[in-house]
Amino acid sequence: MSAEAVLQTETVGKRNEHLYFALRNPKVAIGMSVVLLLLLAGLVGPLFISADPMEYIGPKSEAPSADYWFGTTYFGQDVFAQFVHGLRSSYLVGALGGGIAFVIGLTVGFTAGYRGGLVDEFLNMITNVVLVLPALAVLIVISSYLEVRGVVTQAVIIGLFSWPWVARAVRAQTFTLRNRDYVDLARLTGKRAPQIIMREIMPNMASYLLMSMILLFGGAILFAAMLDFIGLGPSNAVSLGTMMQQSMAWSSLHLGTWWWFVPPGLAITAIVGALYITNVGLDEVFNPKLREM
């Protein structure tokens, strides 16, 4: 009883410790605030601004002003309205695409690492094949055949092709953990494999998993932007990538309408860069050797 209580306070203490250092780490604080601020803009912005970002509302190609914060496009669309709607779809692609890749990578990695043997050989082979396959080229071919493209379908196909490196890392770590004494003990008590993986193995790499989820999130956003830029973006919505594509298609370089192409790219850079910096900060939090305090 008392031992259990001690154990519990210890785990609680450890969790609080991580949170304590995470909140006090400047990299995590700055990174997370940038990500959350833009997320807020994407969530709240569209509620206040016109529902249809493609609407022709104002003068054509006007520079940023008090009325149109980010100016207007060649057709007189409000760039700011497109921007906040684009933020929303970027976050959706990041969360959904990154999430799908995360789930697949985890499943493949844990199964291969825990089961070993032939299952491992097979899964490892698939992982290596998808790893070498140039994902963007495959994504381009698949999405060009889709007649109606949505943000969700885009996220799904991105997720289907960006999991291999997670699977590899999880497999390697599971290999080193699966023969530890406490895992053997759990096996002796008759727990089933999924339960052992969830309860005994996964918590040991929780920090790593959190960080790889962040990287997948950022990677999916970058992938989606590239697809959008080639003209394979969602056909029914605005995204940051399609904004850049449109601005290039209507020669905003030569017309000097920089407010059309600077904000979307800047937002993507800010989101993904902030995620990477958060990652470095989290690394310091979970790995006390790297802390600078």
């Binding site: 970058l222 790219g265 993507i268 993904v272 860069g273 990477y276």
Partner: peptide, 18 residues
Amino acid sequence: GYILTAVPYMWLAILLAW
């Protein structure tokens, strides 16, 4: 370095062209 890895390829290309 972190900012550069986060930049979308086409955006840097657009900025340089501009």
